[in-house]
Design a binder for these strands. Structure first.
Length: 272
DNA sequence: CAGCAATTGAGTCTTACCTCA
DNA sequence: CCTGAGGTAAGACTCAATTGC
């Protein structure tokens, strides 16, 4: 033995005897099965003077009693490292070797550390997952906004080239194939679309109507499906664009389509 | 010399499989 | 043939103890 004397490791013969009987008691208590008697262990240990046998028998000693564990645990709760005096006291109180108490605390600290690592890992992982999820949402939101921006850029740009009416012809997506040839239908933007992505408030895009009471006409003009299509664009984004309120720009309720604007009936042809 | 990390080895638990009445 | 009880082997797991630093 390198670090501790044989005496310390094994204790006195009386202690060894005690250990063996304790072991038997514990095993019987734990399993309810018939186990090797303490006397036979003692007998073999006393008859054999070699270390190996002692070691082997000593190795057989397993599992501290519930009471011992309870005491050790409660002590561990108050302090994870034992003062030498406390160790001796506790060992005496529990009928254990001081070395055993020291080892128990050592192993207990290792278990605690392992649990702590696990807890920390879980906390970090949850935090990471949350961030990753938010990042993904923001990413898709960004893509949706980019698409929308592109669409709106086209919408702002192209009609101007072709129209002199409102400074803007309203372009629709390809599905907006309303059959109106109404010559005096015209739309205009009161101001340029502006994107505002701030704290989830999202798209702040206003297309001011030339008239407030044109909703029904618009529905008539585009049909319900078109309105729905427009709404769906908004739904592809997360949060910001998820409601018709936020998706104000192309929502009929905002009166985007001002029928007071006239002429230029083929505006949808320029929709990308 | 005590503490730590890694490892060992014995005890315990769980599960699947088999036999038999 | 199906079923439940009992036995058991294998593998996983736990934990006191050992080893090396």
């Amino acid at each position: 033995m390198k670090k501790q004397s044989i005496e310390e490791m094994l204790g006195t013969e009386e202690e060894f005897l005690l250990d063996c009987s304790t072991t038997t008691t514990m095993e019987t208590r734990a399993t309810g099965l018939k186990v090797e008697s303490s006397s036979s262990i003692l007998e073999s240990s006393l008859n054999d003077t070699t270390m190996m046998v002692r070691k082997k028998n000593n190795k057989k000693k397993k599992r501290f009693s519930d009471e011992q564990i309870k005491s050790l645990e409660s002590m561990f709760e108050t302090e994870t490292k034992l003062e030498p005096k406390m160790k001796l006291l506790l060992a005496k109180e529990l009928g254990l070797q001081p070395r055993q108490v020291a080892i128990w605390f050592q192993n207990r600290r290792a278990r605690w550390k392992s649990k702590q690592l696990e807890r920390d890992y879980n906390i970090l992982k949850a935090s990471y997952d949350d961030l990753a999820s938010k990042f993904e949402n923001l990413e898709s939101e960004k893509q949706a906004l980019i698409k929308q921006l592109q669409r709106l850029s086209d919408l702002v740009g192209k009609p101007r080239e072709e129209s002199s009416c409102c400074g803007l012809g309203l372009a629709g997506n390809s599905s907006m194939d309303g059959d109106s040839d109404n010559g005096d239908t015209k739309y205009k933007f009161e101001k340029k679309p502006e994107l505002s992505v701030e704290g989830g408030d999202g798209l702040d895009f206003r297309l001011d109507p030339c008239s407030e009471d044109e909703h029904s006409k618009e529905l008539e003009y585009f049909g319900q499906d078109e309105e729905h299509d427009l709404m769906n664009i908004g739904e592809t984004t997360y949060g910001i664009l998820s409601s018709s309120e936020d998706w104000g720009g192309l929502d009929d309720s905002t009166g985007l389509f001002d029928q007071s604007c006239s002429g230029n009936s083929q505006w949808w042809e320029v929709w990308p």
